[in-house]
């Protein structure tokens, strides 16, 4: 089977500013990317890194300045309409549903637009209604849905025509924890059970951890890392942190096995202990601290995507 996404030297420039101050900026540069069928790839990077620009090029709504690009064996720019039949897209910040119509009518309309046979449409819809629990609001107008309900509707809308590739652009933005979790579980099932290829951009590290084994990190328009998520963690130093709040100020808690760095804040009442998951566990570390001082509060801080990207970028 051929790759679902294949880019070579993908580049996009924009012209910004008015006459005198006009200049070219490079949003995406030399992106080589290959995604195989059934993969779930996290596409990460800070704001303005070029994620959305790349996704717009992949979906055919933005023309690359240079480079080669094939998606689902099609040329996105020239065969945009054909590609739309093989692609499911969810933009967290935009809606593909009809604002005034009940959810069910949006789904029927999408089925008609994609020319999905009736039986297939019903089967897919039934499954989504079942798993995403859409039943109670299927007949409610989209404008009256809560964000969480609408996002479940958006994901359903993207899957009704049975796409080969599902592109999710920040699908969990603004959702509460329960809604996020429900959506992740469903997407994981779609990927693992149905073998659907998923490309996910997000600022939410748990999204990526749940869904993706592979991560592509982009910064300033360039791919700075493309690897398995565990490997990336290890390479970037994988610094997790235990933040302890003490009952009273104490000297820096140095000398605990596995701790690579201790930072003291608030006159010693708050201390940050950095460690690599390969050296020790958060539980062992907290136990060791509790033996030495009286604890009031403990938080475990995962490295944020921004930190991960920053470290990766510094290394390049």
């Amino acid at each position: 089977m051929t790759a679902v996404v294949r880019t070579e030297g993908l580049r996009r420039e924009f012209t910004v500013g008015r006459r005198c101050a006009r200049r070219r900026i490079v949003a995406v540069s030399d992106v080589d990317l290959q995604i195989e069928p059934g993969e779930a790839v996290g596409f990460l990077g800070p704001n303005g890194a070029g994620k959305s620009t790349t996704i717009k090029m992949l979906t055919g709504i933005l023309v690359p300045t240079a480079g080669r690009l094939r998606v689902c064996d099609l040329d996105p720019t020239r065969q945009r309409r054909e590609l739309a039949r093989r692609l499911g897209v969810v933009f967290g910040q935009r809606s593909q549903l009809w604002w005034d119509l009940p959810l069910r009518e949006s789904f029927d309309l999408l089925g008609a637009i994609h020319r999905v046979p009736g039986a297939e449409h019903r089967a897919r819809l039934e499954r989504c209604v079942d798993v995403l629990e859409l039943g109670p609001f299927l007949d409610v107008a989209v404008r009256q849905l809560s964000l969480g309900q609408r996002m479940r509707g958006e994901v359903t809308a993207a899957l009704l025509h049975g796409p080969q590739l599902l592109v999710l652009d920040e699908p969990t933005v603004g959702l509460d924890l329960v809604s996020k979790e429900r959506l992740r579980t469903f997407l994981q099932e779609v990927n693992v059970v149905d073998g659907m290829t998923i490309l996910l951009t997000t600022h939410d590290l748990p999204d990526v951890e749940r869904l993706c084994r592979r991560v592509v990190v982009i910064d300033h328009g360039r791919v700075v890392a493309d690897d398995a998520i565990d490997a990336l963690r290890a390479r970037s130093g994988g610094a997790r942190e235990v933040v302890v709040e003490l009952a009273e100020p104490a000297a820096p808690l140095t000398g605990i096995a596995g701790v690579s760095e201790v930072r003291v804040e608030a006159d010693g009442v708050r201390q940050r202990l950095a460690f690599a998951p390969s050296d020790t566990t958060a539980a062992a570390l907290i136990a060791a601290v509790a033996e030495r001082v009286e604890l009031r509060d403990v938080t475990v801080v995962e490295p944020s995507i921004e930190d991960l990207v920053r470290t990766l970028y510094a290394q390049n």
Binding site: I61, R81, A84, R85, L87, R94, S95, Q96
Partner: peptide, 11 residues
């Protein structure tokens, strides 16, 4: 920018 949705449909 919502026109991106309209242009991403097979019509």
């Amino acid at each position: 920018g919502d026109v991106a949705i309209d242009l991403g449909r097979p019509w």
